[in-house]
Computed example of a mutant assay.
Amino acid sequence: MATSRFVGYLESRKNIGGSAAGLAGLVLTFTGVAGPYWPVVVVGLYGVGALIAPPERPPLPDFPDPSAQLDAVRGDFERLGAYLAEVDLPPAAAGRLSELTGLLTALLEPGWVAEILAQDSEGVHTLSRAVRQDVPEAVDTFVRMRWWTRLAPGQDPPERHLERQLTLLQEEAEQLAGALRETEARRQEAHTRYLEDRAQ
């Protein structure tokens, strides 16, 4: 432990800065400027160099990049699909869910859309939340509430809530797709302006 700290200090910016200043002190000694007090000058300059050297900067944490995050969301989406295949939903809710999962599939499909999405951390978060939290929570709550409704009929039907939730999630996914489309449209317009400026 002590050895690694010593080696770490030898490689540190403080030691390098101090050593450079100490070498300058030796140069002053050999030119006769430091005189008989050269050891004090060399040590003093080393200390000054070590003090003014920039501090060590700890390495940044190695977080996964957005592309790796999208890969993880794809894996979770496949598991979600296996879960949804086992759930019996009313036709209207099943249709809404099919539309939603179709849009999520298109957004998560590897390719140029995913490359654009990977540059939008908020978009990746929105998809991740839909896949890992919102859709499974909506469906699972429906399944549980349907059981309670059978015990106590006459309550607000749970499929109405499920359909509303899936509609809201569909709208959120459509907004994300629209934002990605706008990004591409701006890129296309910028390239057009670039070509027009170059032609002038």
Rank of each mutant, 00 (worst) to 15 (best):
L10V: 01
P39R: 08
L127S: 07
E184V: 15
P58G: 08
A82M: 15
E171P: 07
A152P: 07
V42M: 04
G75D: 08
P39F: 07
V139P: 02
S4K: 11
L80I: 01
D140N: 13
V87W: 02
M145E: 15
V143Q: 07
G154M: 06
A199V: 02
H125Q: 12
L169W: 14
H191Q: 12
L151G: 09
G8W: 02
F63P: 09
S98A: 11
E11D: 11
G32N: 01
A130R: 12
A82K: 15
T167V: 03
E171L: 15
N15I: 00
I52Y: 03
A94Q: 15
G49M: 02
E11P: 00
A2N: 12
A20W: 06
A106K: 11
P55A: 10
L176R: 10
D62C: 11
G35K: 09
A118F: 03
G17K: 08
Q155L: 11
L166K: 15
A20S: 07
G123N: 07
E174Q: 15
L28R: 03
G102C: 01
L166Y: 12
G35H: 03
T167P: 08
G75E: 05
L151H: 13
G47A: 13
T3I: 14
E78F: 12
L26T: 03
V113R: 13
G25P: 04
V48D: 01
A93H: 12
D62W: 13
A34N: 04
R13G: 03
L60N: 09
L107T: 00
L108I: 05
T31M: 15
E189R: 10
V42D: 00
V27G: 02
A179L: 11
E189C: 04
V27P: 03
P36A: 12
L89V: 04
P61D: 01
L180A: 02
Q165V: 06
T105S: 11
P157F: 05
T29S: 12
G154I: 04
V43E: 10
G111Y: 01
A21G: 02
L28G: 07
Q188D: 08
R187F: 04
Y194W: 15
L168W: 04
R193W: 11
E171G: 14
R186W: 09
L45P: 06
E172A: 15
E184T: 14
S4G: 08
E56A: 10
Q155E: 04
V48E: 00
Y9W: 12
Y37R: 15
S12K: 00
I116W: 11
L168P: 00
I16G: 01
R79Y: 06
R193S: 06
R96S: 10
W38Y: 13
V73Y: 05
R57F: 05
D156A: 11
P58Q: 14
F142I: 03
R193Y: 08
R198V: 09
Q175V: 08
A152Y: 13
L84I: 06
Q170W: 14
Y37G: 14
H125F: 08
G49R: 06
M1L: 11
T101H: 05
Y9G: 00
D65S: 09
T192W: 13
V27Q: 00
